[in-house]
Amino acid sequence: MKILTLNFLTCARKACKPQATSFPLHPADSTLEIQESDLNIIFLQNILPRLDWPALISITTELGLPGLQAEPPEAEDLVVKEGGAKAEGEGMEVTEKSEESEKEASQLGKDLHRLLIETTIQEGKLMCACCGHEYAIKEGIANFLLPSHLV
């Protein structure tokens, strides 16, 4: 299971959903595995407003991963800044960047890709801080089925 996915999950119990403490779920006893994949820079830049940054900070801390900066990055922090060299001389003309042109990821962009997409929890559990229920992760897949008395 990707760390990105934790941004969308909450406790499956009806009673927990409205409670702020049911998000994020807290990983424990995790076996992590890196699964390399291509970096999609447009995705990384666009997902920023949809990420709950404080939740991501707590998840990385609980997983013992390198700390994140306190404030969420801006989209332009994820790409290598274009050097001033090109602008030399030629007046003030700004060339429209083609939308499809591949921007190069900065170190921060690469780190975020590694964290959200490439870092996976293969085995472990996710705990709800609201009710204490633990959801198991096995072979990379989380199990959110509840025993009937908890539904």
Binding site: K2, L9, I141, F144, L146
Partner: peptide, 17 residues
Amino acid sequence: GIFSDTIIGDLTSPLRN
């Protein structure tokens, strides 16, 4: 696009409202 994950669960219950 980006595939996040599959989750064993009842309908939409693992997802945030």
